[in-house]
């Protein structure tokens, strides 16, 4: 298993939800985890929103200095560098959407490329720009060229929020697997919300990763 676990993808592919859950899972396995919110392109619905839950779970959170404030500038904090120097930590990096978001990752190319990293592309085939094998490959290429790193894992996170069905997830898995096969990249897992986890296990032979919903909408009573 790699020490650096990086999640990239299209806007709204579910990178943040997958990253949060992945960090929680690593923590459960006894790892000393730091999660980094590297999203410099989207001011809303981000890792920072789950900071309290993560801290309570004993996970350190590093976010852009001005995240969730009105300062609309993408300043990354200096203590981000400790993720590369303190090798005892296991790192989860939640990168901003598209190639635009991946630019921030490219800035750390020199550090990341020194290590055995896992760079996962999160794909939701119900998002219009990653709906086909061809579009997934285009998105992957754009992100690779901006980050200067190689995507070496693909995750199926196909969903329609509260309208998700297992049939839809399964269809997404086929498309995402086809893209992974064509690229010769590992298909890592299909992410499935908890409620559908057991049902989905019966439908697939792929690895399935359960997702707990940590980010709630403002109208959902906490």
């Amino acid at each position: 298993m790699s020490r650096l676990n990086i999640f990239v993808g299209h806007y709204g592919s579910g990178k943040t939800e997958v990253s949060l859950n992945y960090a929680m899972e690593l923590k459960k396995q006894g790892k000393d985890v730091i999660i980094v919110d590297l999203d410099i392109v989207n001011a809303f619905y981000r890792t920072k929103d789950a900071e309290k839950i993560l801290n309570e779970a004993g996970i350190e959170v590093i976010t852009p200095q001005y995240a969730n404030t009105n300062v609309d500038i993408p300043a990354l904090p200096a203590d981000i560098f400790k993720i590369f120097t303190d090798k005892s930590k296991t790192i989860v990096i939640d990168v901003g959407g598209d190639d635009d978001g991946a630019v921030a990752l490219g800035r750390f190319f020199g550090y990341i490329s020194q290590e055995d990293y896992k760079l996962n592309l999160v794909v939701n085939t119900k998002r219009p720009l990653t709906d086909t094998k061809e579009n997934i490959i285009l998105m992957l290429r754009d992100i690779e060229s901006c980050s200067r790193l190689k995507v070496n894992g693909i995750i199926n996170n196909s969903n329609l929020s509260y309208d998700t069905t297992t049939a839809l997830i399964s269809e997404g898995e086929k498309t995402v697997k086809a893209a992974a096969d064509e690229l010769g990249v590992e298909f890592v897992f299909t992410a499935v919300k908890e409620e559908l986890y057991d049902e989905y296990l019966k439908l697939t032979d792929a690895k399935v990763f359960p997702l707990k919903k940590y980010l709630k909408m403002p109208w959902q009573i906490q």
Binding site: Y11, G12, R127, P128, D131, N159, L160, D163
Partner: peptide, 14 residues
Amino acid sequence: EKLLMKGNEAIAEA
């Protein structure tokens, strides 16, 4: 077909 979209994208597409 149902798609998952952001409000801003959905308005633009519509």
